[in-house]
Amino acid sequence: MKEIRIHGRGGQGAVTAAVLLADAAFNDGLYSQAFPSFGSERMGAPVQSFVRVDNDIIRRRDQVYTPDYLIIQDYTLLSAINVLYGLKEDGLCLIDSEKTPEEFDLDTKAKVVTVPATRIAREVIGRPIQNTTLVGALAGATGLISVEAIKNSVKNRFPGAIGEKNAEAVQVAYDMLKGGR
């Protein structure tokens, strides 16, 4: 089983990102589960969402305490709350940032990867909403889910031109992180 925790701020689409990841995994023939942290979500407040992906049926429903993968939508959270808690040593932390992983100097043995997701989203989609871009980046960095499945999930969720653009952003981020960065 692979467990993913997404840290964002209210309005960034952390829950949608989780649902898209799990939906894509489902369409890849895997078992998957996505759920929000159930806070009283407010714009700008720290929020979490969770994903589990497995080859077998998923029964547990507790939050993700020892993630394999972390997605950090807003790197200012790194100094606000302990977003790294429980991250597995052989796991991966994906951050939306123009900086290099070294610049963050994070206290973790897990691999840290950065991707300029907001820039990609702004350039490709025309809006700085990077949740779909980060989902593509995670697929590229981990190979957990196929990029085709993610693009299909994105296009189903957002029909029309906006879905096409989001799928394009997914592909850009996927290609950027595929094979290491």
Partner: peptide, 10 residues
């Protein structure tokens, strides 16, 4: 509530 109502799964 939430744990099931808001959880996405197959």
């Amino acid at each position: 509530g939430f744990i099931l109502t808001h959880a996405f799964e197959g």
